[in-house]
Each structure stands twice: as structure tokens, then as C-alpha cells.
Simulated scan of single mutants.
Amino acid sequence: MSAEPDSPGASRGRGPRLEIEINRQGGAWQPETEEAVLRAAQAAFEAALTFPETDWPAAAREAELSVLLADDSFVHSLNRKFRGKDKPTNVLSFPVPRMAAQPLISLGDIVLGFETVTREAVEQGKDLEAHVQHLVVHGLLHLLDYDHMNDEEAEVMEEYERRILETLGLADPYAGGQAPAAMREQGEEA
């Protein structure tokens, strides 16, 4: 699935534009998940361009993103191959090095693991689509060079996640007591 200019996943008018391609590689993902992914990715892209720490070329207001909705087996293989972690995880982010001369900048890829994402949503008492949106926002911020390797970075990234999710009408995903260190220990992205 790809977002067209008038679809929920692409911005209209003169604002930032994010082309989003969604593919599947296993998992029992539902069609509404794709709409949730499109909304979350566009909201994160538009908001992140306004954050002072975002290292983004001023003239570049168009980008593309690939999202893969996969099963845990596939995510496990990627996590093992690229991160040396022999287990599935919820989200992986694979940034593409930026080339200044590109008219349409590729941000990279976000991969979601169905079974892990579903299990986490149940364990945390969250709506699956809301959890997916949080993970897409989290993954996209990684593609824009945000990280949570220490508490200071984690606080900045989590604050931006909260702001973006609020624009989507979603609650603070960290309100349940998940500390910054807990997210870092999960090691969900590459």
C-alpha cells in the first residue's frame, strides 16, 4: 500500500510530504493497521521537522519511507543478522544514508513484528492500533537520528513521541511507568 497525495498518509498542500510504501511479510495484520501506520508516519514526519534537534536539510520537505508489516520469524532473522540479537522484537529501523542532492529523500525502513507487537499491546492493556502507531512514531524518530542510548536522549525522544501521539489523539505510552532505561533494554531498533 502506498500513500497518494490525497490519502491519509500523505500531506496536502505545501506542507511536508511523506510517501509511504507498506508491504507485508507474514503476520495476521488487519487492513486498519495500514491506515494507522500511514497516519502515524505522516504525523511524526511533519512534527519532527519542527523539532530543533532534527538534522534535516531546510529545502528537503519531501521524503519516502518503507514500512514492512512482518511476522516475528522474519523480524527475528533481521534482528539476528543486523544486530546480533537472537530473538524477535517489536520494531526495527533501518536508516538510509542521506544524499544532499536527492529531490526525494529516502528515510529508510521500519519493520514491525506482528506477534511481539500484539503480545505487548495485550500485556500493556493497549489498543493494538495505538501501540502500532507508537512504534511507527518511535521508529521514524530513529530514522531521523533520534535515539535513547542514555537518559538525556531518552527524555528528548520520549517527549517528542508524546507530542506526536497527542496530535493523533493517543495517550502517553510511558504513563504506565515504563522508564527510559526499560525502552533501551528492549533494544527494538537497528
Rank of each mutant, 00 (worst) to 15 (best):
E46Q: 10
E46L: 04
E46V: 07
A47H: 05
A47T: 12
A47D: 06
A48T: 11
A48P: 10
L49N: 04
L49T: 05
F51L: 10
F51D: 10
D55H: 11
D55S: 12
W56Y: 09
P57G: 04
P57F: 14
A58D: 11
A58G: 06
A58I: 12
A59L: 12
R61S: 06
E62I: 13
A63S: 08
A63W: 03
A63R: 04
A63G: 05
E64D: 06
L65R: 02
S66W: 02
V67S: 00
L68H: 02
L68F: 03
L68N: 03
L69D: 03
D72P: 02
S73I: 15
S73Q: 15
F74D: 14
V75W: 01
H76W: 08
L78R: 03
L78W: 01
R80D: 09
R80H: 08
K81F: 14
K81N: 11
F82P: 05
F82Y: 15
K85M: 15
K85D: 09
K85H: 14
K87N: 13
P88M: 14
P88K: 10
P88Y: 11
T89C: 05
T89G: 00
T89H: 00
T89S: 00
V91N: 01
L92T: 04
L92H: 01
F94E: 07
P95W: 02
P95R: 14
P95T: 15
V96E: 10
P97K: 13
P97G: 07
R98D: 13
M99E: 15
Q102A: 15
Q102T: 14
Q102W: 06
P103Y: 09
P103W: 09
P103R: 14
I105A: 05
I105H: 08
S106Q: 14
S106C: 06
S106L: 05
L107F: 07
G108V: 12
D109G: 06
I110S: 00
L112P: 00
L112C: 12
L112V: 12
L112N: 05
F114S: 04
F114C: 04
F114H: 09
E115A: 09
T118A: 15
T118R: 13
R119E: 08
R119L: 07
E120G: 04
A121Q: 13
A121C: 13
E123N: 10
Q124Y: 11
Q124P: 07
K126P: 03
K126M: 10
D127E: 15
A130D: 13
A130L: 10
H131P: 05
V132I: 15
V132S: 09
H134G: 09
V136G: 00
V137T: 15
H138V: 04
G139R: 04
L140H: 06
L141H: 07
L141Q: 11
L143R: 05
L144N: 01
Y146W: 07
D147I: 01
D147N: 09
D147F: 00
H148N: 02
M149D: 13
N150W: 04
N150F: 03
D151Y: 13
E152V: 04
E152I: 03
E152S: 08
E153H: 07
E153T: 00
E155V: 02
E155D: 14
V156C: 03
M157W: 06
E158P: 01
E158A: 06
E158V: 02
E158L: 04
E158D: 07
E158T: 01
R163C: 08
I164H: 00
I164T: 06
I164A: 01
L165A: 03
L165E: 04
E166Y: 02
L168K: 00
L168R: 01
